[in-house]
Design a binder for these strands. Sequence first.
DNA 1: GGTTGACCTTCCAGCCAGTGGAAGCCCTAT
DNA 2: ATAGGGCTTCCACTGGCTGGAAGGTCAACC
Lengths: 139, 139
Amino acid sequence: MNIGDVATLSRLPAKTIRYYEDIGLVKPLRSANGYRTFRESDAHRLAFLGRARALGFSIEDCRSLLALYGDEDRASAEVKEIAELHLDRIDEKITELTEMRATLAHLVDACAGDHRPDCPILADLAMECRGEDQLEKSA
Amino acid sequence: MNIGDVATLSRLPAKTIRYYEDIGLVKPLRSANGYRTFRESDAHRLAFLGRARALGFSIEDCRSLLALYGDEDRASAEVKEIAELHLDRIDEKITELTEMRATLAHLVDACAGDHRPDCPILADLAMECRGEDQLEKSA
DNA sequence: GGTTGACCTTCCAGCCAGTGGAAGCCCTAT
DNA sequence: ATAGGGCTTCCACTGGCTGGAAGGTCAACC
């Protein structure tokens, strides 16, 4: 298989696949003309990578997961630990975004959104009275 | 004020403040020794930036928001539009993360996490049977 | 006057995970 | 023979910083 075929199969851009080779995640053979030649196992690895990335795992997580996948003597606990850490990171992000969302939604709601210049969104961003403990110290 | 003072006030790292100058978000004066000298208005802008960034606005959004803030003739509608677009982006991210979270939580839940190698997380990532429509075509 | 140490300066490199584009082979079909 | 599509490498760029090196400046202390 050439890179285009495996790109279609894995739904990863060819560029990404070359990048994955660069960083050692996949090691296709080369045919006489210099083209990359992907075996079934390479295609399989790329599909694995595509799904792991779609779940938000970092490239380094993917590397570890692939290593565990190829290790017959792995303990599922090792896999689970990676997944749980990732889950925690996702939860943190969701929490952070949800807080942002709440604040922002509140401000958007309060803004008339008309031709007049008065705007509670800008007023909030420009607010002097946060970080007052710091200001007091230096005052 | 030197950069350290304004860094403390705005709770932004000095490096970040230098970067903001680089990209034209803030324009401090220079004193004879080459040190940046921040006016009250610069400190104010940096605080504004810190809060806008904390709400997840992109640097380019921040640039627009600062311009609107300084424009007496702005319409609040312009501010609101930026905020609403950002809100939509946040909602998209939350949705995406929530979907990931659900899938991942399901898999983590199904994994024994013991010394044995069997692992539904890896099994899912390695699954052949997704993207079957594509596979069928090329088969 | 010398020295420490905290502060400041610039510049260059790197992070993550790719993406875009140029310049140039290779292969097939007409 | 030539047009097109696919493949190759390489370099630069994205966002939003962050780290570190090499060196200038300033206030305090001995």
